[in-house]
């Protein structure tokens, strides 16, 4: 056994462990000077990161990177909420990034679909109990006049939410990168082996892991 919580220490500090795991890590840290020191270091690092000023990348630097995607900026762009400089950067990125271009088309399609929804008149009776319930002692106010625009906005919001969920769930989730720590796995496998004997089974694990073929 490697003897220390490793990655779980950070997960513990982030409050991401289930209670049993958290308790196990906490009790270990109490008696293990090395892990206590590591906890202090991680804590200090987190505090230092919090103190960093927020930095904006220079305009134009990131647009060409395939690792950068537009996310909410697409929607802001379609709503004409971005300034000229930003818009030119977005257009440059869309020209170079098929994923964002496809997402841009999807969002544009969803907006158009919402705009095509028919206007619906809400029945006045449906809203009366709300008024009655909120002011039982007073005289009920006259039936609320619901503006069609409000209803359209509500329907549009619901449709947009549904479209958003469907677009996320209905297709394969985008590949969420994973970083398999192959060297750690080798070490964890070696030290968890129950046999056939501790010495010859474990000895290779004490050697530097070299990944030639």
């Amino acid at each position: 056994m490697s003897g220390h919580p490793g990655d779980l220490l950070s997960a513990w500090l982030d409050g991401e462990l289930v209670p049993a795991e958290a308790a196990a890590v906490a009790s270990h840290v109490e008696v293990c000077a090395a892990c206590a020191a590591e906890r202090d270091e991680v804590d200090a690092g987190r505090a230092a990161v919090r103190r960093l000023p927020s930095l904006e990348p220079p305009p134009g630097v990131l647009w060409a990177s395939p690792a950068v995607h537009l996310g909410d900026l697409l929607s802001a762009c379609l709503d004409s909420e971005v300034d000229e400089d930003l818009l030119s950067g977005i257009e440059a990125h869309l020209a170079a990034c098929p994923a964002c271009a496809a997402e841009h088309d999807e969002v544009a399609w969803a907006r158009a679909a919402v705009r095509r929804l028919p206007e619906v008149e809400a029945p006045a009776e449906a809203l009366r109990p709300i008024w009655v319930g909120s002011a039982p002692s007073s005289r009920p106010p006259p039936p609320a006049r619901v503006r069609p625009r409000q209803l359209v906005a509500a329907a549009a919001a619901a449709a947009a939410a549904a479209a958003g969920v469907l677009s996320l769930v209905g297709r394969p989730a985008p590949a969420d990168p994973s970083r398999p720590s192959v060297a750690s796995f080798v070490s964890q496998h070696s030290t968890s082996s129950p046999g056939p004997d501790a010495v010859s089974g474990l000895a290779p694990a004490a050697l530097p892991v070299s990944f030639s073929r």
Binding site: S178, P180, Q188
Partner: peptide, 22 residues
């Protein structure tokens, strides 16, 4: 006599994150 471990995690590995060679 021998042992074997299967490690599984969510997410697809980026080839650039894997050890060289192989």
């Amino acid at each position: 006599v021998r042992t074997l471990s299967v490690f599984s995690q969510l997410g697809e590995a980026d080839p650039s994150d894997l050890p060289a060679g192989g």
